[in-house]
Design a protein around this nucleic acid. Structure first.
Lengths: 157, 157
DNA sequence: CGCGAAATCACCCGAAAGAATGACGACAAC
DNA sequence: GTTGTCGTCATTCTTTCGGGTGATTTCGCG
């Protein structure tokens, strides 16, 4: 869509250029028949034509490349919601072990300790131990708070 | 640094343009003295000059704006981070009462039932009743699940 | 080899949460 | 006036959580 649009614009400008050129040639012919050119030297005449067409050329060049400028956009965003990048620094800073981090993710999915235990093939008691240490490291005392804080810190999606 | 560099380039091109223009005028004078122009009509002569200077103009226009392209870059980001709009339809669809919705928000903030009761000046039992009905309407049975689902549905920020 | 970190599991206990049920007052709608 | 919804509160009971303590195994590092 972008490319075809550009092509259409270019074609339009070419046509415009042809029309302007034709009009100018006609104009030259007219002033010639009116003996306008005989009052000046061919030097001045050539200079006039050169000036006019240079202006036209520069104008067209600007016009064309102006369309190019728009296309040259560049992404420079930061706060956006990317696919999610884990905050490894915070992870280390808090001293979360891989297992604790894993369980944190499962807690965030709304699973109970028992369900987590079944999913990981460990006892519910083990899950409770992990989550306890997890809460301690996150300085929270409820799982909802843990989830909220973990999301803020970029530990979970 | 970027700006001064651009200025220097522009000045250079202006000078170049002047030199080329002078050279062409000299060229025209030479061919005139050699009776070159007398072999053609002034139309053809003007057309030639027009063609040459148009090409020069377009070239210069492209050259100038090509430098501009680099300047135009940056900007444009697509964070799509809306401030949060409440999904009123889902709210009605689920039949959540204002009170239930309010408590849902407090649950999402990690508050316990008791804390919510104190905040709203009602008994903890009332909070439990509300949250029970809330879970029923959301088809969940744990508060973390409720928070997760509510966020997905756009019921809370 | 000893030492520490990590993971595992167990037991206890109190608090919180969840499910179920019943009840009462206010208020709008029919 | 009857009906229905909403908010309020209570009681009972079960499950889940969270905190605390202790123990075992495994693994890597010095």
């Amino acid at each position: 869509m972008e490319a075809s649009n550009q092509k259409r614009v270019a074609a339009w400008h070419v046509a415009l250029y042809g029309l302007v050129g034709g009009a100018l040639i006609t104009f030259l012919k007219v002033i010639e028949y009116k003996h306008f050119v005989h009052e000046f030297t061919s030097e001045v005449y050539g200079g006039l034509v050169a000036l006019i067409f240079t202006v036209v050329g520069v104008y067209l060049g600007l016009k064309w490349t102006r369309a190019k400028e728009i296309v040259v956009i560049k992404e420079v965003s930061v706060p956006a919601n990317g696919p999610f990048v884990l905050n490894t620094e915070k992870l280390k800073e808090l001293g979360l072990t891989p297992r604790e981090h894993e369980i944190l993710g499962l807690i965030a999915q709304g699973l109970s300790n028992r369900e987590i235990g079944e999913k990981l093939f460990v006892s519910e008691n083990t899950v409770k131990t992990h989550s306890s240490r997890l809460f301690e490291k996150l300085s929270v005392n409820r799982r909802v708070q843990a989830v909220q804080k973990a999301k803020d810190l970029g530990l979970i999606p």
